[in-house]
Design a protein around this nucleic acid. Sequence first.
DNA 1: CAGTGGATGCTCT
DNA 2: GAGCATCCACTGT
Length: 188
Amino acid sequence: MAGERLTREYFARSVHEIAPELIGATLLFGGVGGVIVEVEAYDQDDPASHSFRGPTARTAAMFGPPGHAYVYRSYGVHWCLNLVCSPGERAEAALVRALEPTHGLEAMRERRGVEAARALCSGPGKLCQALGITRAQDGLPLDEPPFELLARESEPALAVGTRIGITRAVEQPWRYGFAGSPFLSRRF
DNA sequence: CAGTGGATGCTCT
DNA sequence: GAGCATCCACTGT
């Protein structure tokens, strides 16, 4: 299921190439995690992207080197994890929206306070809570512990749709998913 | 099921 | 001071 490690060099390309390839990859944090089944792409010319208006204190990691984490707080309550991509000088990122839990299910259940496997990581806020990811991981490299990111070994059936929870550039088809997975945040 | 609204904190205008 | 890349509980079918 899990292939070779995705290095920071891997992320030195456009998010529009990388995001669909991430479906089926394995993401672990401290040995806990699973298979990425849903991501969204955000580029710098995108009004919905945090990098659209240029660098700020919050978005510094998104303007940093690719292959690192960009973690931000959402609605004052949740954390959301992005994988920073960059073709040259552009600040782009893939928002990890859902995992199929495969490693450390009991740790996830404790942190989430729910039992059902499909409720553990079926949303960007949920998966950060399940894995224990917070602002403390903002800017950390993805190719070193406690992160572990492994390429997929086979190509899954890909679902494509519009992004969720945004108010600008709503029509861009930059949401990618593992077609038919029961672990998505929403059906396509 | 579908739709609504509250919680909550921080960033940027 | 508004608005937000969310989640959950609650309502009404």
